[in-house]
Amino acid sequence: MFEARLVQGSLLKKVLDAIKELLNEASWDCADSGIQLQAMDNSHVSLVSVNLRAEGFDKYRCDRNLIMGMDLTSMSKILKCAANDDIITMKAQDNADTVTFIFESPSQEKVSDYEMKLMNLDQDHLGIPETDYACVIKLPSGEFARICRDLSNFGESIVIACSKEGVKFSAAGDIGTGNIKLAQTSSVDKEEEAVIIEMQEPVTLTFACRYLNMFTKATPLSPQVSLSMSPDVPLVVEYSIGDIGQIQYFLAPKIDD
């Protein structure tokens, strides 16, 4: 028996909004410790990893490890039926071929349940090595979304250059060039408005705008985002999911021929 109840159901709705454009289908691995999802996009350029800790749920029970393969478009359609303030419960029997979503209004006066068929997905699992990144940039998630959106007007790629002076995002194309520089903030009233740069060595890497823009669909999950970079390895874009976990996007760089 698997059962996970989340009073802050809107978090699960936001997680789906953050992955459904990138992934058509994916497996949710349910274990005693929580729920994880790892999947590559169709072109194998990026990888999404979602981690939801068991302690983050208001009720969590997973008697046996369970892999729930889901069509994410279908899951998203079902979660659209939940109101933002609904309590969401996911339930499945051991070895079941369906999962049930239960939505309860805060007053408990309306209860809906939706059953969805599970899929058998044969997905590659990748081992992600622990890495000490040369640069870790923390910035407001809305600012990052704005930068990606604005620079997408100029070209297909964004160059992210991190040095001790700050971080520079650049794009170039037919209409011209755009550069956005952010310096580390010296003092801020609110922690989530801060730009914090931890740098061991300067790094400059180039990434596809299309993917960065898809990652920013996670913006409603968290006021801050972190970008981790090292020379010649994938970028990690990480958002926390309330207090219950995090979503990480790994993006392979573009390399000059």
Binding site: H44, L47, G127, I128, T206, P234, F250, A252, K254
Partner: peptide
Amino acid sequence: KASQMRIDSYFTSI
């Protein structure tokens, strides 16, 4: 022109 790398050329299958 820069070419797009694939993510599975960095991480190994497990």
